[in-house]
Amino acid sequence: MAVIQALRTALFYFIFIGQTVIVAIVIGTIALIGGRTPASWALAKFWCRSTLAYLRALTGVKTKVSGLENIPEGGCIIAAKHQSDWDVFAIFPHTGRPAYIVKKELMRIPFFGWAARSLDCIEVDRRKGAEAIPLMMAQAHAAVERGCRIVIFPEGTRKAPLSPADYRQGIVRLYMELGVPVVPVALNSGLFWGRNSAVIWPGTAEAKFLPAIEPGLASNVFMERLKKAIETDSDQLILEADENGLSRPVDPEMRRKLDALRQSYQNA
């Protein structure tokens, strides 16, 4: 089973990487000539949806997205848990005109970086720490004025399922300065397509848009509500997937975490 799944994963990566290069070159070229265009957005949505289709056909990973009714009209911030590359593809098609906050290194890649800028991506130089915040804010304000919804992964990087939460201050600054609702997004994708995983395992990866947090809260109150919403619902999605049966191997440490989490819910 593992060998077959590894071969299916390798085939997926071959097609995925090849298509990504082609799409980046096309959108990047369009960006150099015409800037932001409807054609670029159409290609980006095709890239996301086709990637999810290849993922299902070749590796057995299904996609389920719920709670779309919780996305408000107009400007907002979408703050998602981040466990997998799947998160980007699953969230993108449902956010209208998204402006993803991405690390600066990605924006320096030829064609890919040009394409990302034409798709309203906001760059942040994590090496500068707090000094990077003002530039990020300026780009975020401009994106909101263009009608974008800001998409951010508050922990800044992919984390393994049930890893300790590590939320950065960038989401708080965005919330305080932009004055728009924040929609938390819980997910369990890391169970199937983990960070730097050599094997992608079959199952149903889920993303759940949760009720929006209204603007105007104190920073500490906002952060507490955001973390509680994302972490609680992500844990529940992970437990439900485990109860339905996981095809991936579960090492003793992961099993211990799952059992402890399940016990905590039973004792609550």
Rank of each mutant, 00 (worst) to 15 (best):
T51E: 00
W41R: 12
I33T: 12
W41E: 09
T51N: 14
L55D: 01
A39W: 15
L43H: 10
I33F: 13
G34M: 02
Y54I: 00
S50W: 15
F46P: 04
L52K: 02
C48D: 07
A31L: 05
I30C: 01
R49A: 07
L55A: 12
I30E: 12
L52M: 13
A53C: 09
L32S: 13
A39V: 14
S40F: 00
L43T: 07
L55Y: 01
A53N: 09
T37D: 02
W47L: 09
W47I: 04
T51R: 00
K45F: 00
G34A: 10
I30V: 12
A39H: 04
I30K: 04
L32Y: 05
A57H: 06
S40R: 11
W47R: 05
P38D: 04
R56H: 09
A44E: 03
Y54L: 01
P38C: 03
G34D: 01
W47E: 03
I30F: 03
A31P: 05
A57W: 15
I33S: 09
I30R: 06
K45E: 09
W47K: 02
I30W: 00
W41K: 06
A57K: 12
L43E: 03
A39Q: 14
A42T: 15
S40A: 14
A42C: 08
T37R: 11
P38G: 07
I33K: 13
S40M: 02
I30M: 08
T37S: 13
G35Y: 07
A42H: 12
R49T: 10
A57M: 09
A53P: 06
A39F: 14
P38Q: 10
G34I: 01
L58I: 06
P38W: 10
T37Y: 06
W47S: 07
A53Y: 04
Y54Q: 05
T59F: 05
T59P: 02
T37N: 10
S40D: 14
T51Q: 08
I30T: 01
L55P: 03
W47P: 01
R49D: 15
L55I: 05
R56W: 11
T51L: 02
S40W: 01
T59L: 03
